[in-house]
Design a protein around this nucleic acid. Structure first.
Lengths: 400, 400
DNA sequence: TTTGTTTGTCTATCGGATGTACAAAGTGTT
DNA sequence: AACACTTTGTACATCCGATAGACAAACAAA
């Protein structure tokens, strides 16, 4: 039997302390009195918890606010500068690293292209990346509080990279490697899950509790935020929507199945379809997403039609998603989001016509606001969240 | 902003009390000492909570157990006879009512067939059903503790029946109707969600935390148990898998879309396919699931082939489900489960060949153990769970 | 009989939330 | 300027419930 949580005053205190901290994070500037009325906690309780948080430098006081007919309140702010977090988005042929403060604001970023590197070489690139970003920090109470890495592959529940097909990786323990090198907590997460979390925390998914993030790059992955929490499945393998059958007896897929969604609606599908249709790119032999986008921008009908076809097939899968999850919001992210202009309308039409009417109630279908940064921001947010939980649990009352 | 939970000792006590009660429900007979070591709670704490539960007649003590070298333990049991729960499965053309004790054992059941009744008439049948079942009870501390109803339709978050297409119902407040009539809490739930909960609580899904229950009747509905909890979506409309597109450009569906799963893998699909293939039923003009099953039992190749085809298409959708959710267990339930013999093998083959290999780790695909009773048992379980929560919250210490 | 173990209760203690009182710092009115 | 009234944040007594440890009762094994 699964060991259940047992409850005592310490748990109560911890939960209340995160409740107070979250009130400040979401509503700063805010006074102690307002926190009390917002959370329902007693004024005295709030006061003592706030004082602990002040001692831990996680929040700070600023000058008095406006009076509403009585004593002026002391305004509290989340101390976003208490430390830094590093988020790394590992792509199939690139590395994007960001340095953020605790509120997810990007302080520095670095982008590295590569091609056909081995695991060892990529690891070295990552270490260089972390070193570079660390060097950009100023002195803060906590320094680098953690590193998060988004990976295009299957991550097991114990944070091992089980399989990253496009990198040709298997059974790799990147977490252990980085933690022993840098001595800070490392979070490894699937790229789609990271993107979902990024959009929920900093992007267009703020204040939503049931979000489906569809990451359309070379393939398709999906991150599921259900009831406000990331759903990862029994072993951490959920969200493999790319291989959802949408056409029985359709094209054979490398996964062994047939008619998989990503054969119709991914970046790879777009390129293949462009090749089949002999789309001509000026001054180049290679067809890429960026080049097709610039063609479309110039009003090229053939490439616009390609995007519209992709938009329709995105709609097919998203229609399924909506019927399955009845989400508040569907977010389309990753590289394809740059083609929003031409995808949006055919997608909208398909969903409007095919999706059960009641499921369309209170439904939003959006494109990513963070674009290519959602995954990196997501893993950075994971690191921040993990740090804050841990900081509250080990309540020394103050830090040295 | 959503009002967060606030934590204090009362909450702690309530949670610990349910923890103790659940330990007894899952591990009876069990001693106070064993509960303490199982939950991690202090012996004294357990003792006082147990005494409250004894006073509330929710548990009872029985004679001493075997000694293991010291004082003999007093064994505690869950008092399944503290009251009765009523579960009603409302089908398109039938009503199945069960009277259970608090452990989900069926004490009485009644089945009523009907055809083309109005809402008012069905309501009367239901009231008769409840009256009949109530009359079968013996005197218990709490009597009828609640009624649950499973409905083949869309239930909104406030328990209204938004749409039940096969009954031709819209916007019906059955909960209010029954509550004011009988004066006990009424739970209305979608039939697939109810079945999922039934299987998780009493059936083959016991001790699993990520269960997908596929209810295959006239249409297809799916109940999702994710992280041990029923996931209902933003408005309560989740699980409409029946209208998942599995063949773009396929057969038109009444929902407005095309190539929907239930056009290929439901009871209705089976019947239609039998008609197309001119299956001959002896002594009858009407084709029904039951008659096809009895044909198959007699070794009729044509009907066996029909079932195998349905099995394959069930596999197509279930493959998608597995890739999406990475569940621990998929349960196929409702009427089609009676044809397990002929469905099982083609389904298993499709899943084995098409599903991503890593998603098949720790995966079970089972047929319902409760067969046609899962929905009724599920809603009955909802009522029990609601009652126990409420009983623990209003801790009078004892009942009259 | 002796020794050691297990069970369940009782009591003192402790941690932390709550309620109330109160001082400090405002506003508005006369 | 004097006064009443509000609002904010802290201090203190109180209460609730979990915990630790002592204890007696009930048993097994030597």
């Amino acid at each position: 039997m699964r060991q259940n949580k047992r409850w005592n005053q310490q748990v109560v205190k911890k939960e209340n302390k995160t409740l107070v901290l979250d009130s400040i994070r979401n509503n700063a500037p805010i006074s102690r009195a307002d926190i009390a009325s917002l959370t329902g906690l007693n004024k005295g309780t709030v006061s003592s918890l706030v004082n602990e948080l002040l001692g831990e430098k996680l929040i700070y006081e600023s000058g008095p606010g406006k009076s509403s007919g009585g004593r002026r309140p002391v305004l509290l702010y989340f101390n976003q500068l208490a430390g830094y977090s590093i988020g790394i988005d590992l792509g199939v042929n690139y590395l994007l690293g960001i340095l953020t403060n605790l509120e997810g604001n990007i302080c520095h970023e670095k982008y590295v292209d590569f091609d056909n590197l081995t695991y060892e070489e990529i690891l070295q690139e990552m270490i260089k990346m972390v070193d570079y970003l660390s060097a950009q920090t100023e002195t803060t109470p906590y320094g680098i509080i953690g590193i998060g890495v988004g990976v295009p592959g299957i991550i097991s529940n114990d944070s091992k990279i089980l399989l990253a097909p496009n990198l040709n990786w298997r059974n790799i323990d990147l977490k252990e490697e980085l933690e022993s090198k840098f001595g800070v907590p490392v979070t490894i997460e699937n790229e789609a899950n990271a993107g979902a979390y990024g959009e929920k925390t900093f992007g267009i998914g703020k204040n939503h509790h049931n979000i489906i993030y569809v990451s359309v790059g070379i393939g398709i992955g999906v991150g599921l935020i259900l009831n406000g929490r990331l759903y990862k499945g029994n072993n951490g393998f959920s969200g493999e929507f790319g291989h959802m059958t949408i056409e029985v007896g359709g094209t054979k897929c490398s996964c062994g199945s047939e008619g998989c969604w990503e054969l119709y609606a991914s970046e790879r599908a777009l390129i293949k379809s462009a090749q089949r249709n002999n789309i001509h790119i000026p001054d180049s032999k290679e067809i890429s997403l960026e080049k097709l986008i610039s063609l479309a921008k110039n009003g090229d009908h053939d490439s616009i039609q390609l995007f519209e076809e992709i938009g329709k097939y995105l709609g097919v899968g998203i229609n399924n998603i909506i019927n399955i999850f009845n989400p508040e919001q569907v977010i389309i992210g990753n590289r394809i989001a740059a083609a929003e202009t031409w995808l949006k309308e055919p997608l909208r039409q398909w969903v409007e016509n095919q999706t059960l009417w009641f499921s369309q109630k209170d439904l939003k279908v959006d494109f990513s606001a963070l674009l290519t940064h959602s995954a990196a921001l997501g893993v950075s947010a994971f690191a921040v969240e993990k740090f804050l939980l841990q900081a509250i649990e080990t309540n020394e009352g103050a830090i040295s």
